[in-house]
């Protein structure tokens, strides 16, 4: 464990907490893409199947369980408990266009053609694009609440920090994983436009509003 990975994980955890608190406190999931949340739930359940087969550390197990449980809880809040507030008219991204290509790519480019490995690879590919429905929703409505912006910033920072972790591990441990690195780069690049708006607008107290 190095500082970049720890900060990345904490940033990821913070993002999830911000989102759950926002939904719980306002009793509303307006402005949040349920499609992205479904994709994240698929990502964590397919990636952490090794919970049942491999023990790494208490930290690792704890975080995996938290990520699976909170992603399922978010989907439940959006599609069941606070369904009436869900912005489904604007959340029109077709997630099969992300799921199917990610799965085909995982079958073609992986470390080993075994079910657990293919699902791990699929989850890495899917995670890299899972935020697209959310960004699509923000671009469709032309704005995002500050709290949604903080959520997106924390979530985007997580994979960005992992990039530094991978650079560190490459030099310090001679370890690297190209599948994770390339997908992580794609994932971080997708947030760049948002990062720019966040730093130039939201941090200065303005609402995130896209130019008309």
């Amino acid at each position: 464990m190095n500082i970049f990975r720890l900060l990345g994980d904490l940033s990821h955890l913070l993002a999830i907490i911000i989102l759950l608190l926002k939904i719980w406190k306002t009793r509303s999931c307006a402005g949040i893409s349920g499609k992205s949340q479904i994709l994240f739930a698929i990502v964590y359940t397919t990636r952490y199947l090794d919970l049942f087969t491999t023990f790494i550390s208490a930290y690792n197990t704890f975080m995996k369980i938290i990520f699976i449980a909170t992603s399922l809880a978010t989907v439940f809040l959006m599609y069941v408990k606070f369904k009436a507030t869900y912005d489904h008219n604007h959340d029109t991204f077709r997630i099969e266009f992300l799921i199917l290509p990610a799965f085909v790519l995982a079958l073609l480019i992986n470390h080993e053609l075994s079910p657990v490995e293919v699902l791990w690879t699929f989850s890495i590919y899917l995670e890299s694009v899972a935020i697209l429905p959310q960004l699509f929703l923000v671009s469709k409505t032309g704005e995002a609440e500050s709290i949604t912006s903080h959520y997106l910033f924390a979530l985007g920072s997580y994979r960005g920090l992992y990039l530094f972790n991978w650079i560190y591990r490459y030099y310090a441990e001679d370890h690297y994983d190209l599948i994770a690195i390339v997908a992580g780069l794609v994932q971080t690049v997708l947030y760049c436009d948002f990062f720019y708006l966040y730093i130039t607008k939201v941090l200065k107290g303005k609402k995130l509003q896209l130019p008309a």
Partner: peptide
């Protein structure tokens, strides 16, 4: 192993 190293990440 390499596989284990990869799986220790989240």
């Amino acid at each position: 192993s390499e596989k284990k190293k990869r799986k220790d990440e989240l």
